[in-house]
């Protein structure tokens, strides 16, 4: 799929890429692979996560304006989805009641 118009897809279409392993071509000769954590709806930038050792991960942010092509490689299994969704939660939930 050619997605030179990636910034124009919109939130519902971007959401369909979340939790999938994608290959992103950006700029002239950059290529990135990783699990798509989210897409910033303001700048259309993609956040890709690559898991290494337990507790370690490498995060790549690809700017929306530089995206040439996005290709889905595979869907995440249950474990990967959970790992993705819990990676950036706040350390301790804050209580709002006095």
């Amino acid at each position: 799929m050619n997605t030179c118009d990636w910034p124009l897809l919109g939130p519902l279409q971007w959401t369909s890429y979340v939790n999938k392993q994608v290959r992103v071509k950006a700029g002239k000769d950059e290529e990135h692979r990783g699990w798509l954590l989210t897409v910033d709806p303001v700048s259309a930038s993609l956040v890709l996560v690559d898991f290494g050792l337990p507790g370690k991960a490498s995060v790549q942010v690809v700017m929306g304006h530089a995206v040439e092509e996005v290709q889905v490689l595979q869907e995440a299994d249950q474990e990967t989805t959970e790992r993705l969704q819990t990676s950036f939660l706040p350390p301790t939930p804050r209580r709002l009641d006095p």
Binding site: G10, P11, L12, W14, T15, V18, L37, T38, V39, D40, P41, V42, S45, V47, V59, V61, F88, L89, P90
Partner: peptide, 21 residues
């Protein structure tokens, strides 16, 4: 409403990611 919900979920995760950076 669906679109705005999707937008807010995506943005929140992105902001949390920025915080961790």
């Amino acid at each position: 409403q669906k679109e705005q919900h999707a937008r807010s979920m995506l943005r929140e995760t992105f902001l949390r990611c920025l915080l961790s950076m």
